[in-house]
């Protein structure tokens, strides 16, 4: 069974723009907020923007390789969130805050 491609109706450029916007919202969140957890969420948002584009192009080229890539991105994201939140918990225990402006020890 073969239906007409979605790209006959929705040009792939639309997907490009949507994922670019989602990505930039993620960037904005990273720059805008001080709460480290929200920054983490923004990073998830950025990853998802990229995922969306990968899936879109996977369909565009009728190639499942792109979707496999999304799998790996999800695996890495899951690992990253687990470790990242563990680090945040450890930091929170020490300074009682998850405010990145409190974490200025990068400069000695």
């Amino acid at each position: 069974m073969a239906l007409l491609s979605i790209f006959q109706t929705v040009p792939v450029h639309y997907y490009l723009v949507v994922s670019a916007m989602l990505f930039c919202i993620g960037v904005l969140g990273v720059l805008y907020r001080r709460n480290a957890i929200i920054i983490f969420m923004s990073i998830e948002l950025m990853l998802n923007a990229v995922n969306l584009l990968l899936v879109a192009f996977s369909a565009y080229h009728n190639d499942s390789g792109g979707q496999v890539f999304v799998f790996f991105v999800m695996a890495v994201a899951a690992a990253e969130v687990a470790v990242g939140l563990a680090i945040l918990v450890a930091i929170f225990r020490n300074v009682h805050a998850v405010d990145i402006d409190e974490l200025k020890n990068l400069k000695w």
Partner: peptide, 14 residues
């Protein structure tokens, strides 16, 4: 330039 604030670094990165 090296303020130590992560926010600045991320801004510069972007």
């Amino acid at each position: 330039l090296q303020t130590g604030y992560i926010g600045y670094y991320m801004m510069f990165m972007v």
